[in-house]
């Protein structure tokens, strides 16, 4: 993916994306093998449905206004048996067969060989994402998922608290995340792009705001990105970012959030090691900008009512500025390899 150089650029990209918003989360605009298969099925079903509906409407019309001969035919018991049993028996058998065959081919789609494994845990109300780095070392991330194009990706899905459902319509169907269980989903993106996903199982409170983005990038770019993502966070060099870091640690952010390479190792909330490289704040609620990040820290309950992060209103504006600057500087993963 050709990345814009700065946060503002990302925002512009995201706005651009907004222009064609109806495509980022649409079942009928597939960007992956699985979604394309289902979209074909959907069109077939719409055709079938339209045909049958037209047939029933026509039959009603003929029963009301048809010639007496046609009405006599329609009024026979045999017509009931033919139209009510024989016709659906044949068409439904075909449909069922096609549906089952499609499930079979879904099972047969490439999944394990060279598959990229990503674990996603649904939490109230964000997504914990864990990649598998070199030698299987876990790489923690959150609320944004990057995948390589053309490579099957196997998602391991779990839930930390209540039931959630992982759904990226442009890439494929949804699978629930259920406490105590691990479910799986296999997706293969066919073209690079940004696909929006959203929690599809009501999980209370701000369920409506539990969205995320999947960025499908060329396999080589992905590999490079993954390598960068495995690195620890940027070490603050400027004075303001250093002050930001010490504020981050002193205010207790580290109790819930981790920034690898620092003493912040909390795991209750999203990992922030590379937060500056993300596109959004508040779990895809707002584009990642200085203003929005500030707003989320001080006024999060308005941005995302019910979210589990307390509002940090005690911070004075200069402190807040330093903190936000520090966070925005955490973008090793965004640097060109």
């Amino acid at each position: 993916m050709r990345r814009a150089p700065a946060g503002g650029g990302i925002l512009a990209g995201s706005l651009l994306l907004g222009g064609c918003g109806r495509d980022v989360q649409s079942v009928l605009a597939p960007g992956g093998i699985q979604a394309a298969q289902i979209a074909d099925l959907a069109w077939l079903l719409f055709g079938f449905g339209t045909l049958v509906l037209a047939m029933v409407v026509a039959a009603v019309w003929l029963a009301l206004r048809g010639s007496s001969r046609i009405r006599r035919i329609l009024a026979r018991e045999n017509a009931v048996l033919t139209l009510g049993i024989a016709f659906p028996a044949v068409t439904l058998t075909l449909l069922l067969g096609y549906g089952v065959w499609l499930m079979r081919s879904h099972l047969d789609l490439p999944r394990d060989r060279n598959a990229v494994g990503i674990e996603v845990v649904g939490e109230q109300w964000w997504w914990r994402v864990t990649y598998s780095g070199a030698h299987g070392t876990p790489i923690a991330s959150a609320n944004e998922i990057r995948i390589p194009v053309g490579v099957p990706v196997g998602f391991k899905l779990r839930a930390a608290d209540v039931i959630h459902s992982f759904w990226v319509p442009s890439l494929g169907g949804k699978v629930d995340m259920i406490p105590g269980r691990t479910t799986q989903l296999h997706l293969t993106a066919e073209r690079p792009g940004i696909y929006r996903g959203q929690c599809a199982e009501y999980c209370g409170g701000p369920h409506a705001l539990m969205a995320f983005e999947v960025m499908a990038m060329p396999a080589a770019d992905y590999a490079a990105w993954l390598q960068r993502a495995a690195e620890p966070a940027t070490t603050p060099v400027s004075e303001i970012t250093q002050r930001g870091q010490s504020l981050f640690l002193a205010t207790g952010c580290g109790a819930c959030h981790a920034v690898r390479g620092t003493s912040a190792t909390g795991t209750l909330g999203p990992d922030l090691t590379h937060i500056g490289a993300r596109r959004s704040v508040g779990i895809d609620t707002l584009p990642l900008t200085r203003e929005n990040l500030t707003r989320f820290i001080t006024d999060g309950q308005h941005v995302k009512p019910g979210n589990l992060m307390p509002e940090f209103r005690v911070l004075q504006p200069p402190e807040l500025d330093a903190l936000v600057t520090y966070l925005l500087s955490l973008k090793v993963a965004d640097r060109h390899g």
Partner: peptide
């Protein structure tokens, strides 16, 4: 018949 049909296709 319909219940049995998928068993011929799906593992």
């Amino acid at each position: 018949i319909w219940t049995t049909l998928p068993t011929a296709v799906l593992p």
